[in-house]
Design a protein around this nucleic acid. Sequence first.
DNA 1: TTCCATGCAAAAGATTTGCACGCAG
DNA 2: CTGCGTGCAAATCTTTTGCATGGAA
Lengths: 136, 136
Amino acid sequence: MDFVIELKKRGHRITKPREVICSILETSGHEHFTVEKLHNLASRKDRNIDLATVYRTLELLEEVNIVEHSHQVHGSGIYYLKSEYDNSHIICESCKSIYDLKEETKKTINEILIKDSHFDSINHHFIYSGVCKKCK
Amino acid sequence: MDFVIELKKRGHRITKPREVICSILETSGHEHFTVEKLHNLASRKDRNIDLATVYRTLELLEEVNIVEHSHQVHGSGIYYLKSEYDNSHIICESCKSIYDLKEETKKTINEILIKDSHFDSINHHFIYSGVCKKCK
DNA sequence: TTCCATGCAAAAGATTTGCACGCAG
DNA sequence: CTGCGTGCAAATCTTTTGCATGGAA
């Protein structure tokens, strides 16, 4: 899937910054990016891309349901590809590594939430934290 | 339980701002406060209490395991009493109401996470969001 | 008396916004 | 050619920090 095409389809223009940011995300697997990291990577691929442009592009990609963000323990955002149950992760309080949860775990939790809460649909969007094995 | 006593026990001083903030939290039930709201409430109870003092007091209460915080969709913090499984909630994307999850739900999710993730202990700290019944 | 906690102001960090220009369509 | 998207700078919002003073113990 080509994210810029998705943008074009919806009437947005294809620009160099958008191409660069989309290509980083497309090849990222499940990586979770701080805005700063994404900005650095993007600026390295092209001439300097403004931080504001990175924010604006991420906002756009979020509108279009390609990207999603949540917040780290200290408040700054992390952005990553959205997929049905992929909007969750667990961060090590010690080394700050971010891991994905197993598909099965995420699916189970999602089902429990829909069943038990008084919400019919849930965009789960969460961070778990703890200390991972490496840091013990 | 008296939170200021808990602070005193650990060698911290009892001051008017701490008394005021503790008393608000003690009578809050499960309410989730933005720092701004807590600051307003506290300032109304006493003379003006500085925002920095609110932050410092909340940080202290978090150290002492009385309070916990997480982040709203747009990044600013919300603070609330900590209890074993009380560090989670679900926020309506439309009216911004914050609800607690059922004890049972929270407990189940916690158990699943510990069982399935490669973390041995988890300080779950998360926000779910969706659209609540009122807003449908 | 001692030194911790506060208020105030300034700093720091993250994100958003206004505006003029350049480029995509 | 038209107007959307960008870069730049400034503004805004949230949280943190330095420092002198006042008050708790």
